[in-house]
Design a binder for these strands. Structure first.
Lengths: 181, 181
DNA sequence: GTAAAACATGTAACTTATTACATGTTTTAA
DNA sequence: TTAAAACATGTAATAAGTTACATGTTTTAC
């Protein structure tokens, strides 16, 4: 049976690496994690509550400045076991993509459609930008072989995301080049 | 502002190509469309109702056999205009992927983790199978240059999906090969 | 002939995800 | 000094998506 509520495992995984606040978790979804999963703080805070109720995580309160309370969450041994089970279990279902642009293309019936070049060029720009942005991050976050080895999973997914964007760019260029003059 | 309720446009696009029933639409999401968008019949039937209420589509009833009623939907001129507007508008937001496997990888901290080879090999098999399946479909559905030109969008997205799977396969193989002995 | 699979259409309940509402603190830069 | 940005945490309302419930017909293969 397919595991559901993946968000709980992602949060568990992040908290297992280091204690974090709900705010920190929210930010994590803006960067590398966000390439492969998205969540807003309105989903994260209630999920933290549920994970704590289940005994998978706990928190301690720290004070920032005069009175701003931060809840630093971390995993419990139970939570760590649940996380390991999730990672170790197979992942036999390929999560399907949602790509609005590709769908628009689907409804373009001929390669002579005058809208095609413009549509493809817009996406080309977007994916080139994204690839460059990710490459800059890779260079910043993982400048050395050592840093890559120390956070191997993180390095892998960044590298995967870049490759994916590069494939998209290649495909767009190729498709543009194949259009009739 | 980002366009929402993409499903309505996809249905509109499919119905604009040829009249279809809700059942036909459901099946369409099992094949090529399903590579880029998913929907169950429980989402499709209510959406058809709404689209008809808005005057974007209409239907006529045909009888199959003795008494089985089929509702064949097709677009109205209003619906066609709405569809064109959607396609012509830019698509500046890259729809983000959700990939559970990649997230699991993220939580693998070192390249010596004994679970890694197994995890990567499972995905390799899945993506090889998928690529092969898609390639078989491409060969069946688009055997000639002529057939490719006649349904250009459909051809493009199938080809894109294959390339995407192939990139995934390449990346997995490369990652496997780079693991320490 | 008959059973299974495919065809066909819908609703209900529930889960997941997004956007909006709501409030307050701390840090940074002008 | 003060305004803006960032930090920080929550809930409410809505939208989107999945699973389950519910029913009946037609075709295909045995």
């Amino acid at each position: 049976m397919a595991q559901k509520n993946k968000l709980q495992f992602i949060i568990l995984g992040l908290l297992d690496q280091q204690p974090l606040t709900g705010y920190d978790l929210t930010k994590a979804f803006d960067h590398e994690i966000g390439e492969f999963w998205q969540a807003q703080h309105s989903q994260i805070y209630p999920q933290l509550k549920r994970l704590e109720e289940q005994g998978y995580i706990t928190h301690e309160i720290t004070i920032s400045g005069e009175k701003l309370e931060k809840k630093l969450y971390h995993t419990t041994p139970t939570g760590q076991a649940v996380l390991t089970t999730w990672i170790t279990a197979g992942t036999p279902e390929l999560t399907a993509t949602k790509d609005e642009f590709i769908l628009k293309l689907y409804f373009v019936r001929t390669n002579r459609d005058p809208r095609l070049p413009e549509m493809l060029l817009e996406q080309l720009q977007l994916h080139v930008d994204k690839s460059e942005h990710l490459q800059a991050r890779l260079a910043t976050v993982f400048p050395t072989k050592k840093s890559q080895a120390e956070n191997f999973g993180h390095y892998l997914i960044l590298q995967h995301a870049i490759g994916r964007e590069n494939y998209y760019v290649t495909w767009l260029k190729q498709t543009l080049a194949a259009l009739p003059k």
